[in-house]
Design a protein around this nucleic acid. Structure first.
Length: 205
DNA sequence: ACATAAGTGCAACAAAACGG
DNA sequence: CCGTTTTGTTGCACTTATGT
């Protein structure tokens, strides 16, 4: 079943072309259409952590779908559901232009999010060939997580190996000056977790 | 005001059901 | 058995509600 998703990639691309494009400046996705489902990527494809509990997430609705592109941003349509009753008054109170601004902002935010996911996909080692369907959002995140865990494990193993070699051969400790990446790693490993998180948040801004 | 969560409709697709 | 129709699932963009 999973393989079908990959096999239909090209057909799907063609189909999506006929799909009415979003009314706004949504960036054309290089590989539009349905994404690789979770099962397809075999999450944990890199390295399955014992606690990598994919069971509860394997069949989630994850991100909810949304109103179609038919619903133009120019027309503020209320869903015929629960919130419509209370929302109607609020809508009247809000100017229409305010509502449109909010919608546009949210649309931009989602596009930014998708761009970031695309960047993440580009650095995750999975088949990037045109014949392979783009990873879904959830698959991208889970695969990235597993990849990070795998790299961390590999680094840890490497450190232990170096320590072992040094202890058995009596070799001089490495001069990390000539290994900037290793030096950085060493620094990270010696940094408390709280400090790391603080650094990360500050560097993002 | 802004960010995030929730609700909604849609397209693409697979699998099941059906009829010849 | 094979082609067609129906049904269920998945993933998405978008809007709206809600929390801060």
């Amino acid at each position: 079943m999973d393989s079908h998703h990959f096999n239909f990639h090209l057909n799907h691309n063609q189909a999506m072309m006929s799909h009415p494009p979003p009314p706004t400046s949504s960036p054309p996705q290089s590989v539009p259409g349905r994404r690789t489902p979770l099962g397809t990527v075999g999450l944990g494809g890199f390295f399955a952590q014992p606690h990598a509990s994919s069971s509860h997430q394997s069949h989630s609705d994850e991100n909810k779908p949304s109103t179609s592109s038919l619903m133009h941003s120019s027309e503020v349509s209320m869903p015929a559901s629960s919130s419509a009753t209370t929302g109607g008054k609020q809508k009247n109170r809000q100017g229409k232009s305010v509502r449109l601004n909010i919608n546009a902002r949210e649309r931009r935010r989602m596009h930014d999010l998708n761009d970031a996911l695309d960047e993440l996909r580009s650095v995750i080692p999975y088949a990037h060939s045109p014949s392979v369907r783009k990873l879904s959002k959830i698959a991208t995140l889970l695969l990235a997580k597993n990849y990070i865990l795998m790299q961390a494990n590999a680094l840890d193993e490497l450190r232990r190996l170096i320590a072992y070699i040094q202890s058995t051969t009596g070799a001089q400790p490495l001069d990390l000056a000539s290994f900037p990446a290793a030096a950085k790693l060493q620094q990270l490993l010696n940094t408390p977790q709280a400090q790391l998180e603080q650094n990360a948040s500050s560097s993002n801004n």
